[in-house]
């Protein structure tokens, strides 16, 4: 039991770092498509975190919505407008 919870916490640290780095990296990109994909990567980490927080169904939903649906909508918008951020 002890082993499991400590490995959970170690996973939690990794996930917090992954979420933060993913979020900041997504907002700092000039290329908007890359930003959308990075926000999807952040969502994967978030889905694992939901798993650790005893909500596995939310993990599944977040994995599908956050990595496919949301970046898909945003990329659709980017194709209809422009790909890079103007100064």
């Amino acid at each position: 039991m002890m082993e499991l919870s400590s490995s959970f916490i170690a996973m939690g640290y990794i996930m917090v770092i992954a979420i933060t780095v993913g979020a900041i990296a997504a907002l700092l990109q000039k290329d908007l498509i890359r930003a959308a994909f990075l926000s999807g990567a952040e969502s994967i980490a978030l889905a694992f975190f939901f798993q650790a927080l005893l909500a596995p169904d939310l993990g599944l939903t977040q994995a599908i919505v956050g990595t496919v649906l949301l970046p898909g909508i945003i990329i659709l918008g980017i194709f209809k407008t422009r790909r890079t951020e103007e100064d």
Binding site: A26, F50, L53, L58, G66, I74, G77, I78
Partner: peptide, 19 residues
């Protein structure tokens, strides 16, 4: 578009707080 991506991050933050 960046503002919209930031909104998805904000919404994720609220979700994880609730859980």
């Amino acid at each position: 578009i960046k503002k919209i991506i930031a909104f998805t991050l904000l919404s994720d933050g609220v979700n994880i707080l609730l859980v």
